[in-house]
Amino acid sequence: MNEMLIMTPGPTAVAENVRLARSQTTTNPDIDLDFYDFYKVTCEKFGKFLQTKNDVRILAGEGILGLEAACASLTEQGTRVLVLDNGIFGHGFADFVTMYGGEPLLLRSPETASFDLALLEEFLEKDHDFKYATVVHCDTPSGVLNDISKICPLLKKYDILTVVDSVAAMGGEPLAVDEWEIDIVLGGSQKVLSAPPGLTFLSISQAAYQAMENRKTPIASFYCNLLVFKDYFEKKWFPYTMPISDIYGLTQAIDNLLADKEIIKRHADIAEATRQAIEHSALQLHLKNGFSNTVTVINVPKETTAQAILKEMKEHYNVMITGSFDRLEGKVLRIGHMGENARASKVAYTLYALQQTLENQGVSLLSNLQDDFLKYYQKLTFDKK
């Protein structure tokens, strides 16, 4: 392959029609009323995609902006927040809560498995005096997937607002915002949407708006204040100049997803085939359960290092996967198969490059990763027809 194959768990490859959409002639988004209509229509498309009637907003900033904005808008001095912690990003929500004067309580569940629902239910029976709770849908550093279809309704049973980071899952995993009683769900342009980094999008329930409006103190931010977007269309006023080219691209990206009726199935089949090929080869998956369909995480074999593997794959095979960070740094490899990366040909070549690299570095595998992946993938797609 001449071009670098980017198989990281975001940013992902950008669809060609998204790149072209970003090249359109732009207007002045602050004063052109037609752009307010365009932005509104794009938000409504996201609402359809997220299966929600709640307001949707697009913010000018990478996905982390959405996480901080949710916490900034809901948190004031002394606000008790339940942080569901079974991963690096799950734990990280506590930093935003503390930053805005809140009091996070971290409820920990093993990091190599989906969040323990029985643990959560038992805890809530004893203590449920929280304004809101945070949970990560797919915790990207480990690839663990949490069952928000059960977690969020359980929290709402106790009148706890729900904030969900679905940046690495949205589009590649089922997501039904209204049915699952999610108050704020957050996504990012550079993951399954397959658009460039730089945009956050989120849905906001009426209950979340009410909590923001009924605060005792003003929101301690402007850029991270979700309320400033509440009536943008009626006022014909954005709080800052919107990145119009990025939004043109994002609109095309959401059109791509809405047109792709098999997108959830495609992610599920590719992820399952990848995991089966990995396990058959005697490489070790990092997780015990709760496998995401957007990223596969593999323990680094003892014969080599993450750095050596990543370097050789990039320099010799033009494939870029990634390691992880924080407490997983140097311990795992991550293959992103989300959005435009969730294509059988791309994953097959990535596994070929991985096998060649590992064997060059003294790691013996029991099977052929590429052949096994294609065999399992074909079986999955045939069986499900």
Rank of each mutant, 00 (worst) to 15 (best):
T52Y: 12
D231C: 06
L175E: 15
N86D: 12
I148W: 12
D159A: 13
A207G: 09
H91W: 00
N2F: 07
S345C: 09
T241A: 02
A306L: 12
H267T: 01
G101Q: 00
T134N: 03
A21L: 11
L82P: 01
I263V: 14
M338T: 11
P218C: 01
L74K: 02
G47V: 01
L333T: 04
C152L: 14
T381R: 14
A353F: 04
T98Y: 11
L82I: 06
R327C: 01
T27E: 08
F115L: 09
G143N: 08
A207P: 12
E181K: 10
G330N: 03
L117S: 09
V83L: 04
K236T: 09
E103R: 08
N2Q: 08
E340L: 11
T200W: 08
I254K: 00
L120R: 08
I204W: 09
I264A: 10
N293V: 00
I247T: 00
T162Q: 07
M212D: 05
Q210M: 00
V319K: 01
L250S: 02
I264E: 09
L227V: 05
T27H: 03
K265Q: 13
V18I: 10
N341I: 01
G188H: 02
G66S: 03
L74I: 05
L369A: 00
A207V: 09
A253G: 03
R334Q: 15
T350P: 08
E121Y: 02
I182G: 00
V14P: 08
T12H: 02
D32N: 14
M4A: 04
A273F: 02
F35S: 05
N28R: 04
K53A: 12
A282R: 03
I278Q: 00
F123Y: 11
P196V: 14
H128N: 13
F325Q: 15
L354A: 02
L227Y: 01
Q355D: 04
S367I: 11
A208K: 12
L227M: 08
E329A: 14
I58H: 01
V97M: 06
A208L: 07
V18Y: 07
M170S: 13
D178C: 05
E303M: 05
L193S: 04
C138N: 10
R327H: 03
K302D: 14
A259D: 14
L145R: 09
Y209L: 09
A21D: 10
S114E: 08
L374F: 07
M99Y: 06
L120E: 10
G143P: 08
G87T: 06
L67P: 04
P196M: 11
F229D: 03
A72E: 12
R19I: 15
V144G: 13
K261V: 11
R19T: 15
F291T: 05
L67R: 15
C138V: 14
G362F: 02
C152V: 11
F89E: 10
T75F: 09
Q355P: 05
M170N: 07
E312D: 13
L74N: 05
T42M: 12
S142F: 10
S367M: 07
E234D: 11
L283N: 07
K48R: 10
D30M: 04
H316W: 04
L145H: 05
L50M: 15
P174F: 04
D32L: 06
I160V: 09
P141F: 15
R327P: 12
F233Y: 15
V167M: 01
G87V: 10
V300K: 02
E315P: 12
V81N: 11
K191T: 06
P197R: 14
N54G: 08
Q378V: 03
